[in-house]
Amino acid sequence: MSETILEIQDVETYYGKIHALRGISFSVQAGEIVTLLGANGAGKSTTLRTISGLNRAARGSITFMGQDITRMPPHDIVAMGLIHVPEGRRVFKGMTIKENLELGSFTLNDDTERRRRMDHVFEMFPVLYERRQRDAALLSGGEQQMLAMGRALMADTKVLLLDEPSMGLAPTMVQSIMKIIKRLNAEGVTILLVEQNAKAALKFANYGYVLETGSIVVKGEAEQLRKDESIVKAYLGE
């Protein structure tokens, strides 16, 4: 059996007075791709932001690799290898692509290793290599998503939290992003994927959870969720 690498238990989060997460629990096994689905405002992004420490959990606990990270500041969580690619990519516009990638390895103190990881990222995203000296603001949406993912891989990534990587991208670009997610998973990175595009996500995830107004309403093997027409209809659009 694989081991649990990330465990979320009864987590509640508030945005001001809004009760955004109302006690959610789920776990991610090492090596898996797990997807969080649900409509806009269901709490998917908040879940990721709570895990990575950007938002505080009011109650409940989050355990990563056997360690309680519920109250840890985000930079310490990153140093442990839990990396979050936020919604909207959030690349550093006004800095070059190379500088963006370097910042991804901020917690690393070894220039040789930094160069090795950058080569790896450039091999995965050749377009970033071609434009490495250019301002990140000049990249297209898909290229910015690649940069955001490449930047995350500059860290010693064990679990990657991806928030809507396909948002606003052309279909061919969505496919190549999905292909890269699969490749990363094959290289040993555990993935927690938030997606609007439920069909695409369930196609290659192992497990899926459906969120509705801050609670998990459905969970199951991705295969089963995809085949269950009532679930697809009720929660996932179509």
């Binding site: 990575s52 420490g53 950007l54 500041p73 985000p74 930079h75 990153v78 140093a79 990396i83 979050h84 690619v85 936020p86 959030r90 690349v91 550093f92 516009k93 006004g94 800095m95 500088e99 370097e102 910042l103 991804g104 901020f106 917690t107 930047r151 860290a155």
Partner: peptide, 17 residues
């Protein structure tokens, strides 16, 4: 570089560690 990045996006910097 971190200093320049913080001027651009603080939350993204937190996610860089």
């Amino acid at each position: 570089k971190a200093m320049r990045a913080i001027a651009i996006d603080q939350d993204a910097c937190r996610l860089m560690g």
